[in-house]
């Protein structure tokens, strides 16, 4: 009995170390370009990754939110509208799980952009957030100029959105949750309507959070 116990503990310890040593790394998505520069008289080639460009939106509290506000944060992005009858309730039911897991870890945000800014004014977004149960600053619901929202969705976060009167609710859009790291690079894209992929997102955020700091300062 005693021996079995010791054996078990040994196996547990060993597997714990093992999973620690080959900890997975997340891919970096988007275009990349090599740059050559001189460091201490030596030629060094570095890779420049595509990053999220500057933006400016307003959150449910009426505060202005820019790319700078998110500096130093890992964040998850999605696109929705408050009157969406189809996938948005599923997405935000799943996003609540992400929110509850990370809301108190710091340096983490969720930003949900409305793709119907005409209807979804700041007060409408505030009411939606309140009813969803979000009263802190870990999950922002963003409003802005329609062109800005659609451009950043398609060009930068790579999520298709489109106004279409034949679709339920008047818009076609993809329910992706896009994971952005502290250097504003895309590190993952998950189907926000699929609980399994959302669990994967939660795991991946933990991986990102444990990335060493020297990788962050670039």
């Amino acid at each position: 009995m005693r021996n079995t116990l010791i054996g078990l503990v040994a196996i547990l310890l060993w597997s714990a170390c093992k999973s620690g040593s080959d900890k997975q790394k997340l891919p970096i998505y988007g275009n990349r370009a090599p740059v050559t520069k001189m460091v201490n008289g030596k030629q060094v080639t570095d890779t420049i990754y595509q990053t999220i460009p500057s933006f400016k939106f307003v959150n449910q509290y009426g505060d202005s939110i820019s790319n700078k506000t998110l500096n130093g944060n890992i964040y998850v992005v999605d696109f929705f509208f408050t009157t969406c009858p189809s996938i948005c309730p599923i997405m935000h039911r799943n996003m609540l799980k992400v929110y509850k897991t990370f809301k108190s870890t710091g340096n983490f945000k969720i930003i949900s952009h409305t793709i119907d800014p005409k209807h979804d004014s700041v007060p409408v977004l505030k009411k939606y957030a309140d009813k969803l149960g979000i009263t802190d600053n870990s999950w922002w619901f963003l409003q802005g100029k329609k062109e800005d929202i659609y451009t950043i969705a398609e060009k930068n976060y790579l999520v298709a959105v489109k106004q279409d009167s034949s679709a339920a609710g008047g818009y076609i859009h993809a329910g992706y949750f896009v994971l952005i790291d502290k250097q504003k690079r895309i590190r993952g894209s998950y189907d926000g309507t699929d609980p399994k992929q959302v669990d994967q997102l939660i795991d991946d955020i933990k991986v990102l959070q444990s990335e060493p700091d020297q990788m962050i300062v670039q």
């Binding site: 309730p89 935000h92 039911r93 609540l96 939606y128 309140d130 009813k131 969803l132 149960g133």
Partner: peptide, 9 residues
């Protein structure tokens, strides 16, 4: 599970 969604549904 018929649980709805917070105070929305």
């Amino acid at each position: 599970g018929g649980e709805g969604l917070s105070a929305l549904i």
